[in-house]
């Protein structure tokens, strides 16, 4: 194919691919999509996606760009309605790959019940970007009276994760670097509106819902502990981690709690509701392995403590910074 030559021609070709995949009644051909406003409050979220490699076991950057924004909306209790997306594509990026990305976006958007209503593509010179960058913006509708936020965690809350943790981060790590590790790990990337909906249908007593993306569950927990000024106590034996992920982490000396997820929620709700929530999650796709992993406490506000399998109460190291050995 000879569409690498003229920038103009390339853009058109790309536009055609996307139009073919994103086709729906609301997708605009004009400068802006014109939409009916939702009945409830409106939630808007935007995110840029860069992932290297763009294709990995269990997904690609297209699927990720839909899930990321859909999940951000869902975590606010908003049903995702519309998405816009902007692409920056490196000159010479293979068309078949773009096609694959578009297909994944189409499929994921459909699953999430969200319509892509406006888009833009730019082609950047070789080396100016790495493959393809995608920015998505989502609009969602908040109809329910559920109020969740990072500063609403209360002592006595149970902490729930919706599935095994760290798979996305682990997958990317293995796809990026050839460690010679022979592990069958796929990304957990998934759109989670259905899961949030199921939880909200099960109970209105919810304090926090967060998706544990970059920095993993550990980072999210530290954020919430800080925002809500509460302590967090985890029971290591209850945290679901796939054996492959555990194995890779053991080899590399990494903590699964700090590996990114793209299809996992952290939920905090009064202890009494915990089992109801877990039961509701277990019948949904992507959250059959939901588990109660700990509780919110008054002690040690701002900190995350882990009851380890050998019975110690370790302070989970603060996220960020270098991985420095502390053992003397």
């Amino acid at each position: 194919m000879a569409h690498g030559a003229g920038g103009h021609q390339t853009s058109e070709l790309i536009d055609m691919i996307f139009k073919a995949h994103f086709d729906n009644p609301d997708l605009t051909a004009d400068d802006a999509a014109v939409l009916t406003p939702p009945i409830g409050k409106m939630a808007v979220s935007t995110d840029g996606f860069i992932v290297s490699p763009a294709f990995y076991p269990g997904g690609n950057i297209g699927k990720l760009s839909i899930c990321g924004t859909v999940n951000d909306l869902s975590c606010m209790g908003a049903k995702p309605l519309y998405l816009t997306c902007a692409f920056v594509i490196e000159e010479g990026f293979p068309m078949e790959k773009l096609e694959e990305i578009a297909e994944a976006m189409e499929k994921t958007a459909k699953e999430a019940g969200v319509r892509i209503v406006s888009g833009d593509t730019k082609v950047a010179g070789k080396g100016q970007v790495d493959g393809v960058f995608i920015t998505t913006t989502g609009i969602g509708e908040i109809t329910d009276g559920v109020e969740v936020a990072g500063n609403l965690a209360k002592p006595g809350d149970a902490i729930i994760v919706t599935g095994d943790i760290g798979r996305h981060g682990c997958t990317i790590l293995l796809a990026r670097e050839d460690f010679g590790i022979d592990a069958d790990v796929t990304s957990d990337c998934a759109p989670l509106w259905g899961n949030v909906k199921a939880v909200m249908d099960a109970t209105h007593e919810l304090h926090v819902i967060r998706d544990a993306t970059r920095g993993g569950v550990g980072t999210v927990l530290y954020e919430i502990a800080g925002q809500s000024q509460v302590g967090i106590r985890l029971d290591a034996s209850k945290i679901p981690v796939a054996p492959e992920v555990r194995g890779v982490c053991g080899m590399l000396g990494l903590e699964p709690l700090y590996l990114a997820c793209e299809g996992r929620l952290v939920i905090m709700a009064p202890k009494e509701q915990a089992q109801t929530i877990v039961d509701a999650l277990k019948v949904c796709p992507y959250s059959q392995d939901a588990a109660i992993i700990g509780e919110v406490t008054e002690e040690q506000p701002g900190k995350v403590v882990m009851l380890t399998e050998i019975g110690t109460q370790a302070l989970l190291p603060q996220p960020g910074g270098e991985l420095l050995p502390r053992i003397c």
Binding site: E177, D178, F179, G180, M251, L252, L254, L324, P325, C328
Partner: peptide
């Protein structure tokens, strides 16, 4: 052998690796 391979890969990429002069 796999353990060794992983460690060498980590060394090459300076992954989770810090420069150290620890006598211990």
């Amino acid at each position: 052998e796999p353990e060794c391979k992983v460690l060498l890969a980590m060394a090459d990429r300076k992954m989770n690796a810090v420069t150290s002069t620890s006598a211990g």
